[in-house]
Design a protein around this nucleic acid. Structure first.
Lengths: 368, 368
DNA sequence: ATGAAAGCGCTAACAT
DNA sequence: ATGTTAGCGCTTTCAT
């Protein structure tokens, strides 16, 4: 990216009527108001009790006339305080993470700070690169949405003072890092889903996911297995789909996985009568595959999603799914983060777990 | 947001083995390597030809041992160069803007800079607030995705040196600001859509949109009107839907608008035989409404979307739509922006227009 | 009530 | 080849 054009040799003449303002500094404001630079600073930082009203107004007027805005880089360098929190998600192109980021931004605004949002594309290198860039710019709080399997690469950053709250990931014993986390109870969410299907009479229930590269996937799989086992069922390996779609490029939003799984599983003689998809997009992929095979949802195949993205209500039939209360989660996440940042929260890492709930819609039906 | 905990009184003892590194500075690296601070700087900025290899390696070692990372705030304050471009979109919760942001980030990475992403929620105040914060942090390039009807609120910022490339909006004569822009040819895109429907024999074609609050909406409406007129048709007011869904909250992604429009228009005796929706989400809303009324798509109603979001391929029938080549657009947008930033592009504002194309799928059919 | 001065961590002349 | 120095624009004691 281009460097800025070298500054003009001669000092720019003070603009005629304060019209433009490229690089107006406190000095110029002070000059114009006939006060010292520190008085201007006091106005800026709201310490107006330290001066008489007349002065305050003179300075304010000068600020307005010059349309002066403080250089945040300088201020933040000086104070060490940067009112921004970082947020790293796998990809905002994915509607779930889009909603996630939106909620986060909303909650952060309530607390007077901005959000710096980055996509990791599930690449640890990029995650590290972004986190590093943030910390080096004085950002001290980071929400990590991407939940990689290990946090080891982030150790250096926490040692340099970065506070991290992870989403969807509690530390394991093997972790070098024990960081705060918030998440939904994925095991229980999966259980909710499977129990719903069991309650409808289904026995041949398939689990459809890409590779279990993240903790939530592992947990959802475990919840699936647990619930099945509790019902005395042991799903055959062919009913547990953990494959990548094999599609080229990173464009894979889960839909293709679901489609492939459906096309493969649903042709078998002992085909599942219900599918529990790792997320809503995958569920929609199953819709697509089932349609191609001429199977009617929900009468010939029940489908459950996970996440409750807004798409669920758009398709026919609407997708029965598991809802995760995002705004509450964000609230808790920022409570943790701010607690660490202001030192009010001490001690070992906290791990908050919020309960998801079942959203009953049209994609599941009792077994004929 | 909390301020940082006040720094410890006593100067922190140089850490035992370079283990931690909270606030390691160039001074400490220099000390450890037994060189001056500017030699360290030279290492950092890649001027290794200015020193002998031995020195370079000693400094590098010290950097590694202390896990030193430069303070970007300080560097950027000093140099005035911030390798970040800003991006403001209405809402990343909307899949189109999610994809938009993703493409942007990809293109920016190619050019060695990061993206700072913000949601304006179509609120001029927030847009201004974010743009201001960016400029005050030294960010000098901004891509504006939100295309508000006027840019007047941004005049102050461009005067302070911010370069802006707008998406989906060329300046009007009444604008105070004539900024570079890139966009898709929405008029032509709409024409493509309508001509496709006309070619299938449709005559009663409806236009379905929320209020025409943005330029792309206005253009798509105009394209619709033009194409109809060219075919000698004058759509009745009842076939031009420009209403809000009236749903509470900002959660409105267009789907509800389409649904309401369908429920209302498709009950009339002279109901449209085809709908051209302002975007894909609205098209999906029409799906939902049509389904509720028992109308089959495409045999009883043809539906056209706009944008070609990934959802189009998930629903049944897949949505015929207008594709906009996002990666190309991003490439052009950054060409313009960087041209302005490095001064290689001078003169009046450029307005690039890329042509969209028709993506034929299953939601449109010949009139019976 | 106001101003002078030090310095945040860095880069870039300008010495040596 | 390396070091010294002067700021970038701001906040913050500390004087006055």
């Amino acid at each position: 990216m281009p460097r800025p054009t070298p500054p003009a040799k001669e000092k720019p003449t003070p603009s005629p009527l304060g019209a433009h303002a490229e690089g107006v500094t406190m000095r110029e404001v002070a000059l114009r108001a006939g006060v010292s630079i520190s008085t201007v600073s006091n106005v800026l930082t709201g310490k107006r009790e330290r001066m008489k009203t007349e002065t305050f107004e003179r300075v304010s007027a000068a600020i307005a006339q010059l349309s002066y805005a403080p250089n945040l880089l300088a201020r933040e360098l000086k104070t060490g305080f940067v009112p921004i929190i970082g947020l790293i998600v796998p990809s905002v192109a994915n509607p779930f993470w889009g909603a996630f980021a939106s909620c986060m931004e909303h909650e952060a605004r309530q607390r007077g700070c901005h959000v710096m949002l980055c996509n990791s594309e599930r690449d640890v290198g990029r995650e590290l690169e972004y986190a590093q860039a943030m910390l080096s710019r004085g950002i001290r709080g980071l929400i990590l949405g991407s939940s990689p399997l290990s946090f080891d690469h982030l150790v250096g950053l926490t040692e340099r003072g970065l506070k991290i709250v992870a989403f969807d990931r509690s530390a394991q014993e093997t972790d070098l890092l024990d960081m705060d986390s918030v998440r939904f109870d994925n095991i229980n969410g999966a259980r909710l889903a499977v129990n719903h299907l069991l309650g409808l009479g289904h026995r041949r229930i398939a689990f459809v996911s890409g590779p279990t590269i993240s903790c939530n996937r592992i947990d959802r799989l475990e919840g699936f297995r647990l619930a099945m086992r509790e019902a005395g069922l042991e799903p055959p390996a062919s009913h547990v789909w953990l494959r990548n779609s094999g599609s080229q490029g990173g464009d894979d939003d889960g839909t293709e996985i679901g489609r492939q799984a459906a096309l493969s599983m649903l042709r078998e003689p002992d085909r599942p009568t219900a599918c529990f998809a790792i997320n809503d997009q995958t569920a929609l992929g199953i819709y697509s595959g089932a349609r191609e095979l001429g199977l009617h949802i929900p009468h010939e195949l029940s489908v459950m999603g996970f996440d409750n993205i807004s798409l669920c209500r758009v398709v026919d039939p609407e997708v029965t799914t598991i809802r995760q209360p995002l705004p509450e989660l964000m609230h808790e996440a920022l409570n943790l983060l701010f607690g660490r940042l202001d030192g009010s929260l001490k001690g070992p890492a906290r791990h908050l777990i919020l309960q998801p709930d079942l959203v009953l819609r049209g994609s599941t039906a009792a077994l004929a």
